[in-house]
Simulated scan of single mutants.
Amino acid sequence: METTGYIHSIDSFGSVDGPGVRFVTFLQGCHMRCRYCHNPDTWKLAGNRADACPQSGDPASAASGCNYKEMTPSALLKQALRYKRYWGKEGGITVSGGEPLLQLDFMTELFRLAKENGVGTVLDTAGQPFTRTEPFFSKLSSLMENTDLVMLDLKHIDPEKHRALTGHTNENILDFARYLNEIGKPIWVRHVLVPGVTDDEENLRGIRAFLDTLSNVKKVEVLPYHTLGIYKWESLGIPYTLKDVDPPTAESVKRAEEILGCQK
């Protein structure tokens, strides 16, 4: 019986989630609670769990902030292939979230089928579920066999400040980056620049020092903090603690890019 994935939403023509034009799938479910998250409606887990969100169509779905559907890997790939002629040489599919590493079985089968059909694959992840224990580690290794590129969010270099920002420390996330380096998997690193939270020089230079220990980093991107997702927090009744924080200035972004070694 084919596994199913819990799909929050789809962007058929994504242009910022990997190289080229991409079919971007956002999965439902995330353990992190980033204070600046612009998709808090992807947090609640799906599936056969007591705390799972109701599926789309259930009257409780909208009230809970959930809006997902189940799809098999083959059905999702079939939908993606409708747009293949627009992708060019660099495009393909990207799976984001939520957190796609919470649905490893689905991801592994989807990327296997994608490679069988000559489709480029990108995993967009925060890395939080990573562990070298089983069965997760073996499943992740299988997924990496058919993953062309990993886009990894590094939210803060300090473990406790990372916990204050996301609800989790970052030791396993940094170990995930080391693992990807060990297997030679290309990565793009993203860092959200939040004034007063992640833009201090100690954090930026700490991230840069860590990245300098890796040989697989192909690109570093600074993502300026924005407030476009606040309405989602308000509609879900979740207090938004960064409401008084303004987006970073162009000068602040440029400085961060210089420290992190971003290349245009």
Rank of each mutant, 00 (worst) to 15 (best):
H191I: 10
A177M: 05
R190F: 04
D148M: 06
I157W: 02
T169Q: 14
K139E: 12
I207G: 05
T169L: 01
E145F: 06
K155N: 07
F130I: 02
E182Q: 14
R208G: 03
H168C: 03
I157K: 03
E171H: 11
I173V: 15
R178V: 10
P159N: 15
R205H: 12
T169H: 04
R190N: 13
G184A: 08
E134C: 00
L174M: 11
R205I: 01
G196S: 14
T166R: 01
I207M: 13
T169C: 13
I157M: 12
N181P: 07
Y179L: 07
E145K: 15
E182M: 05
S142F: 01
L149W: 10
R205W: 08
G184I: 09
E145Q: 14
S141A: 12
E201F: 01
F137Q: 01
R163E: 15
T147D: 14
V150T: 05
E134T: 00
E134R: 00
N146V: 06
I207K: 04
M151F: 09
S141L: 08
H156L: 03
N181C: 05
V150Y: 11
E202M: 02
D148T: 05
L165C: 05
L180N: 13
T131K: 00
L165R: 02
R208F: 06
I157S: 13
L180P: 13
L204R: 04
G196V: 06
L143F: 02
N146F: 06
W188C: 12
H156V: 06
R132F: 00
D148H: 08
